[in-house]
């Protein structure tokens, strides 16, 4: 039951698209900054395999510039 948080940076002018895409993904919660090009992303998945698949799909988003992890907890 892993819980992770990240700072997600959108590609130039693609913040809205990144917000839309992440909001549509299961297990994701986001807090978008209103004055900077950065989003807080929280992932809360049932198991490690789902977590890995989710992160892999997030990394494939065209609107995502980079993802940096800020918190990780796997053993609940």
């Amino acid at each position: 039951m892993p819980i992770f948080s990240f700072l997600a940076y959108p590609k130039k002018s693609m913040k809205d698209q990144l917000i839309r895409e992440l909001s549509a993904m299961k297990y994701c919660e986001i807090k978008a900054s209103e004055n900077q090009d950065v989003l807080i992303l929280l992932t809360d998945t049932p198991d490690e395999k789902t977590n890995k698949n989710l992160i892999d799909s997030i990394k494939e988003l065209k609107s995502l510039q980079s993802l940096s992890m800020t918190f990780g907890h796997t053993d609940l």
């Binding site: 819980i3 992770f4 948080s5 990240f6 700072l7 807090k31 978008a32 900054s33 209103e34 004055n35 900077q36 950065v38 807080i40 992303l41 929280l42 940096s68 800020t70 918190f71 907890h73």
Partner: peptide
């Protein structure tokens, strides 16, 4: 905790950042 850790990192990198 996870959200707060991300917020602390964001506040450090972008002083004055706000989340609606």
């Amino acid at each position: 905790m996870a959200l707060d850790s991300a917020a602390v990192a964001a506040f450090t990198m972008f002083p004055g950042i706000s989340f609606a």
